[in-house]
Nucleic acid binder design. Structure first.
Length: 233
RNA sequence: GACUAGGCGGCG
């Protein structure tokens, strides 16, 4: 759909003209396209039109719209859809909360983000690695390393293992402190736990070495990247 | 069912 919204919606009308009904997946994709373009008003109208199409919104539908609204800064509107979601018997899940956590961390600080993790726990929605990674990243970036470490522990104790992104935020944090030894330790941990290191992760480490003046190390990583076919960006 | 959330850097 990217870059071809007009055509996509034209096709939708064409389909419907032929008596072919779009399904949930199709509508969710279109909704996502609108949200990605920041067209939240249109997204909301499209959402409202779903019932007339005989489409029942599912949790992906709500999650997509909530994400679009949060990214557009319309958190209050997003909240109303969270309510609607519940009254429509769509159980909010970890995807539902991420956009709130992300946006609130960004605008009101990590405390607000953490409050949403608490809300999830209270409502018996199991937080995911992604939910924790968002707050941990924000904590790292505001240099709250103690609390970040505690949240990391809480994440693991809930059965959520750190993934590629979680580890990368940690590498980034060490690099920001000029602690390349720590960054290397994290990389070793990644390898030990079988996480495949991607271009962004290598790039983070490379930048870390460069920013501390160790260009030779940076070049070594760059060579390694090309040798394992992880295209630098 | 290839539908939804998080990480680095550059450009705008």
């Amino acid at each position: 759909i990217d870059g071809h919204m007009e055509s996509a919606f034209r096709l939708l009308r064409l389909m419907e003209g032929e008596g072919l009904a779009a399904d949930q997946y199709t509508c969710n994709s279109l909704l996502h396209a609108l949200c990605k373009d920041g067209k939240t008003d249109e997204a909301c109208s499209f959402f409202d039109g779903l019932e007339d199409r005989g489409i029942r919104p599912n949790s992906v539908t709500f999650n997509t719209l909530i994400d679009g609204l949060c990214k557009a800064g319309k958190v209050d509107v997003a909240r109303t859809f969270l309510e609607k979601m519940i009254s429509a018997c769509c159980a909010p899940d970890s995807y539902t909360y991420s956009p709130f956590i992300e946006h609130l961390c960004k605008t009101k600080g990590w405390q607000e983000g953490l409050s949403f993790i608490d809300e999830m726990l209270q409502k018996d929605v199991k937080p995911s690695t992604v939910n924790y990674t968002i707050v941990i990243d924000k904590l790292f970036k505001s240099r709250n390393y103690g609390l970040a470490t505690r949240m990391w522990g809480q994440m693991v104790s809930l059965g959520c293992s750190p993934d590629l992104v979680t580890y990368t935020t940690s590498v980034h944090a060490y690099c920001n402190e000029g602690r390349l030894d720590g960054a290397e330790n994290v990389v070793m941990e990644m390898k030990k736990s079988g996480v495949t290191i991607d271009a962004m992760a290598y790039n983070t480490l490379m930048d870390g070495y460069a920013s501390v003046g160790q260009i030779d190390h940076a070049v070594t990583i760059l060579k390694h990247m090309t040798s394992v076919a992880s295209m630098p960006n």
